[in-house]
Computed example of a mutant assay.
Amino acid sequence: MELLPWLEGYVSRKAQVLEDLAPDLDWWFSQTPAETSLDTDVPALCSELTQIFVARHANDRLRTAFPRIADNIGVSALGLGSRAIGGISDATGIRPDAVTDSPLANTVLQFSVAELTHAPGIGSAAANQIVLALIEHSVTTADHGNGSPPATEALPGNATPYVCVLITPLGVPDDLDQIRSRAVGGVIDAAIREIANVEGPLSMDRLTRTIVQRFGFERASSRRQEQIKRRVPRAMIRRSRMGAFVWPEQCDPDRWRGFRTPVAGNTRPLVEIAPEEIANAMQTAALVALRRDELFRRTAALLGISRISAQGSTRMLACLNLMLESGRITSDGLTYLSDCGRKQRAAALESAPENAAHRNRQAR
């Protein structure tokens, strides 16, 4: 009820609309989202709730309807499509490329569904997508007390801001002709470690591109880039079929469970994000059971990506397969759930018998 206060009025005859959506007839009063997910298709439930909200609460202000969503959460957390992003831009006057980094409080939460539906460039389909994303985000983060990506025992540190290294000069373009000299080579070696410590894991291409820029080039020849790549210590490089990535020396890729979210427009293309980082974000997204497309969409949103290309979907699928092989995510053939989500389900199932009856009595 605290999560979706607009459900409070569904009693008596109105309750019939909700009773058939989950096995427990009083689920919206008596259960937490984790408990409901034990025997309910959560994505389907969210879709049904979206239809109910749009049909019956079109004039409710979204800020009031979804009070548990933190004001400072960015639009990117909702994983909206390009049409919805463009419509929000038209409705708010914010540039399209700046919408995803804008807080929800300054964008969608200030409107009602009716206002969004009639706003130029949005329409009913995009308005419904926005409501669905708000419901899913509320449900996914419900047991963590705020709108931030949930931290769990298996995800120490979890989400942190993605920080770019400052593009300060390392030299002038002609210096790269002396890359084999001790002086220039030493500068490049120090820069490699500096960039890896700030931005790592990062793609080898991004690392070399950053160093080239700091020597005054917009672009450099493949020969020069290869010369820089050869200076990266092998112990800092992790290669797979998804590319070569440079890691901080003190970071173990097999044990690291963090991922970075964008701030101030520091977004990264999916191809420049290490598969381990994508997998860690995917594990967080799968704290509740999700269908594959929704899992990919929510993972991309955690990483600040609003649209997944065909190449991006292939990359996501490869990461999902790695997670399935490792057991960090499991599937029932329809939905996917992380090991952390399974632990939450088990805990909810263990406590449900003695607590459900008490909550039912309170609710009635």
Rank of each mutant, 00 (worst) to 15 (best):
S12M: 11
Q16S: 12
Q16C: 12
E19K: 12
L21R: 04
D39E: 15
T40V: 09
A44R: 14
C46V: 10
S47G: 15
S47W: 10
V54Q: 02
V54R: 01
A55Y: 10
R56E: 13
D60Y: 10
R61V: 09
R61S: 08
R63E: 10
T64I: 13
A65E: 00
P67W: 03
D71T: 12
N72D: 13
N72V: 14
I73F: 05
G74K: 03
G74D: 03
L80H: 00
L80V: 03
I85M: 02
S89G: 05
T92E: 03
R95E: 11
T100E: 08
A105T: 09
S112L: 06
V113H: 06
A114T: 11
H118D: 13
P120E: 07
A126C: 06
A126H: 02
I130A: 03
I135M: 01
H137R: 12
S138F: 04
T141E: 05
H144I: 10
N146T: 07
E153K: 13
A154Y: 07
A159E: 03
P161K: 07
Y162C: 05
Y162K: 00
L166Y: 12
L166V: 12
L170S: 00
V172E: 12
P173T: 06
D177L: 15
D177E: 14
Q178S: 14
R180H: 15
A191W: 03
R193E: 15
R193D: 11
I211C: 02
R224Y: 11
R231Q: 06
M236H: 05
R241M: 11
R241N: 11
C251E: 12
D252L: 08
R255K: 15
I278P: 01
N280S: 04
A281Q: 00
A289L: 04
R291V: 09
E294W: 06
F296V: 04
R315E: 03
M316L: 07
L320T: 02
E325C: 08
I329E: 01
T335M: 07
T335V: 10
T335R: 03
L337E: 02
D339H: 01
G341D: 01
K343E: 05
Q344I: 10
Q344L: 12
L349D: 14
E350H: 14
A363T: 10
R364G: 13
